[in-house]
Write a protein that binds this DNA or RNA. Structure first.
Lengths: 210, 210
DNA sequence: ACCCGACGTGTCAAGAGTGGAATGTGGGAG
DNA sequence: CTCCCACATTCCACTCTTGACACGTCGGGT
C-alpha cells in the first residue's frame, strides 16, 4: 500500500517522469523502499486515474512529466499524519537465526559472523554516503539525513548483536541442544549441504575461540 | 521465497498440522515473519508436492499432521548455510520519515514521538516475553532467545533514534525548509487533514520542548 | 552520416501476501 | 444429551512485487 505514497512523496519534491522516479528510487530509497520500473509506471497510471497526480508536461521521446495534485498532497499528508503505521517487519536474516539450530554450532557461528561483516559493510557504505553528501536544507536533505542516521544506528546495533550472538553459541549447552536436534533427524556426516558439518567424535574439545 | 523455509523450520522442530503451524506463527514468528492461514496451508501443499514434507498422521477432524522429510531438512540446511541472505528491508516508518517535510514541523515532531512511544511499548512487550519465558536448552529456546535479544536491542535503538530525531526538528533551518516546501504547494490553513496543521503566525516561538 | 548508449514508455507472467468466507467435525461444559 | 466453541481445512479474489521482455527515439561522438 505504500509504494503509492513513496511515489507521491517524491513527486511532492518536484515533478518527474517515470524514468526520473526510477533514478530517485535507486538513489535515495534503495534501502527503504525498493521499486521496479513496472511498479513505478503502473503506480503513475493509477495515481493519475485517481486524480492524485497529473501529466504536467510532455517531453522529447514520449516523455511524460508527472506532477502531484492538491488531492495528492492531501492524501500524502493524510497518510503521514493520520494513518497509523503498522508495517509488520519481515526480517529474513532473523528468520534464519531462529532456525540456526538445524546447522552445527560452528556453521551457525560462521553465519552470524558473516552477518556481522555484511552489516559492517553496509554501515561503512552509509557513512560514506553521509560524508560525501552535501546536506543543504531542503526537505529531502533534512529528513533524508534523519533517515540515514537511522540506518547508521541500526547497522551498528545489528553488528554488535551479531558478534554477541556468535559468542553465545560458544557454550556447551548450545552444542548439546543442537546435537540432540540433529540426531533426532538422524543427521551425521552425509546428506547435509556443506560437508563442513561433521560429528567426528564427541564435542568435548573446546570450540575454536576466534 | 522464505515462507517456505519458515514452515520447514517449524516442522523441523516437530510435526504439526496447518492449524498448529498457524498458532506457532502467531506465537513465535509474529514479529519476524507473519503469515496467514491461506499462505500456510498453501505452502504445506507445495511442500508436500515437492517432497520436502509429508503427511505423517491423520487425526480427528480431517486433521493432517505434516512432518519434514530428509529432503526438507537438506533444503533447510542449504538455505541456512549456502543461500546468501539478501532481503532488502522495506521499512514503512522510515519511508514516512523521508517525506515528513510535507507536514508542519510540529506534526512531524509529534509523529516521531509517537513512533518512540510505540517502539517503547514493543520493547516492554518483548522484555515481558523474555522474562516470562522459561528458557530451556532446546533449539527454539536457544536461538529464539537470540532472536528476542535482537528485538530488544533494535527497539531500544529505534526509540533512542526517534527521540533524537524529534529534537533535530527543533531547529530554525528545518522549520524554514519545511515552510518553503509547503508554501510551494500553496499550503496554509485549508486542505490538510489534521487541522492541527496551521501556520498561525511566524514559527519564531520555541517549539514545546516535551 | 551513422550508430550506440542513454532516455523513455509500456506489457506480461508468475509468485508472494492479504483478507475474508464457506464448510464441516469433535469434544467438553452444562 | 445437546449445543457451542475450538479445531481444521479449503477456496477465492484481490493487490503487491519481481523480473524480463519489447518497443521506440533523441543526441553526441567518430
Amino acid at each position: 500500500m505504500s509504494l503509492k505514497h513513496a511515489v507521491l512523496g517524491l513527486l511532492s519534491e518536484s515533478p518527474a517522469s517515470g524514468y526520473d522516479l526510477m533514478k530517485l528510487f535507486n538513489a535515495s530509497l534503495t534501502n527503504v523502499w525498493p521499486a521496479t520500473q513496472s511498479q513505478v509506471y503502473g503506480e503513475l497510471g493509477k495515481l493519475t486515474a485517481a486524480g492524485l497526480a497529473e501529466v504536467s508536461a510532455h517531453g522529447p521521446r514520449g516523455r511524460k512529466e508527472y506532477a502531484i495534485t492538491r488531492e495528492g498532497i492531501a492524501e500524502l499528508q493524510h497518510w503521514l499524519a493520520e494513518v497509523p503505521p503498522g508495517g509488520p517487519h519481515r526480517d529474513e536474516s532473523l528468520l534464519r537465526v531462529f532456525f540456526l539450530g538445524v546447522l552445527t554450532p560452528l556453521e551457525a557461528r560462521t553465519f552470524l559472523l558473516g552477518r556481522a561483516e555484511e552489516t559492517a559493510r553496509l554501515h561503512a557504505e552509509l557513512r560514506r554516503v553521509d560524508e560525501e553528501t552535501q546536506w543543504d536544507d531542503d526537505m529531502i536533505s533534512v529528513y533524508g539525513r534523519l533517515t540515514l542516521e537511522y540506518g547508521l544506528r541500526m547497522t551498528a546495533a545489528q553488528e554488535e548483536w551479531a558478534r554477541w550472538a556468535a559468542e553465545q553459541i560458544d557454550s556447551a549447552k548450545v552444542r548439546e541442544a543442537s546435537d540432540r536436534v540433529r540426531s533426532r533427524h538422524g543427521l551425521g556426516t552425509g546428506d547435509g549441504p556443506a560437508a563442513t558439518a561433521r560429528d567426528d567424535g564427541p564435542d568435548d574439545a573446546p570450540a575454536p575461540t576466534a
